[in-house]
């Protein structure tokens, strides 16, 4: 699984010396992190290890106190979720980041509605385009749902994650952060989400996969990054470590 991780290439994402404090708590201590194009990285660690903080910085929910982030070699400052998404970093959250009362098409384009007229915030949405592209996007990940106007509350947890992944794909993400996407999902739905990650790898998309379930992470990851107490404690190819060793390392 090492073909995609071409070391000669500039990493798609590189973090140098990231530090983050929440008040007196030093949540992230001088963490370096990088990912290559098409690489799948399993980010593991116990609660409070700092993996959440790291990905919240990358997805723009928090901002680091120190350190630099480079996207394709360019130093960037990720000041908000919209900035992260603009840079091609999409996040799949455990809770799916969907508004249950709104339709599939509306959720697909939430905050980024295609407009027929005007500019963002003062625009008339192109509903036909939303419906069409949302359905195309869903077919792209092998999801065949009732229709673009179906409210998301009518979908199962797995279907919602499918919509979230299709949404990230549609916006041509380069880096996909999956934050515990398989929690609360059935075995079948979990496998489907894992399949998606493998498919994305084929499209050259980098995935950073966070999960408590090491059995989910291990088979699909190229590289395992382990964190504890706000530090990176291991960073090695997945082939060089077993699930049992991972468990011992982080607990």
């Amino acid at each position: 699984m090492s073909t995609a991780a071409n070391t000669a290439e500039e990493p798609i994402i590189k973090c140098v010396g990231l530090q983050k404090w929440y008040g007196a708590v030093h949540a992230l201590k001088n963490v370096d992190f990088h990912a290559a194009r098409g690489e799948v990285i399993g980010l593991v660690g116990d609660n409070g290890a700092g993996k959440s903080t790291l990905i919240k910085i990358l997805s723009g929910v928090h901002t680091q106190d120190k350190g630099d982030i480079f996207i394709e070699g360019r130093n960037v400052s990720i000041t908000g979720p919209e900035v992260a998404m603009g840079l091609g970093i999409e996040t799949i959250y455990q809770y799916t980041a969907m508004v249950p009362e709104m339709s599939i098409a509306q959720n697909f384009f939430i905050g980024r509605e295609p407009l027929k007229f005007g500019r963002p915030g003062l625009g008339i949405v192109d509903r036909a385009k939303m419906a069409r592209e949302a359905m195309e996007g869903l077919r792209g990940v092998g999801l065949h749902l009732r229709g673009p106007d179906t409210p998301v509350k009518a979908l199962s947890g797995g279907q919602r994650q499918g919509v979230a992944i299709a949404r990230a794909m549609h916006f041509r993400s380069k880096v996909l952060i999956l934050d515990e996407p398989t929690n609360h999902l059935s075995v079948k739905e979990t496998n489907k989400v894992l399949d998606h990650v493998v498919e994305l790898k084929g499209l050259g998309i980098t995935s950073i996969f966070i999960s408590h379930n090491l059995h989910h992470i291990h088979p699909i990851s190229d590289r395992i990054v382990a964190m504890a107490r706000g530090e990176k404690i291991a960073d090695l190819p997945a082939g060089e470590i077993s699930v049992d060793e991972m468990t011992r390392m982080i607990s």
Partner: peptide
């Protein structure tokens, strides 16, 4: 119903966390 700002209003009230995480 027809403008993006309207969608943002529904999203903000319907699931504030999702709205924020999607950049609204």
């Amino acid at each position: 119903r027809r403008m993006d700002f309207g969608h943002w209003i529904f999203a903000t009230g319907g699931h504030p966390q999702a709205a924020r995480d999607m950049g609204i």
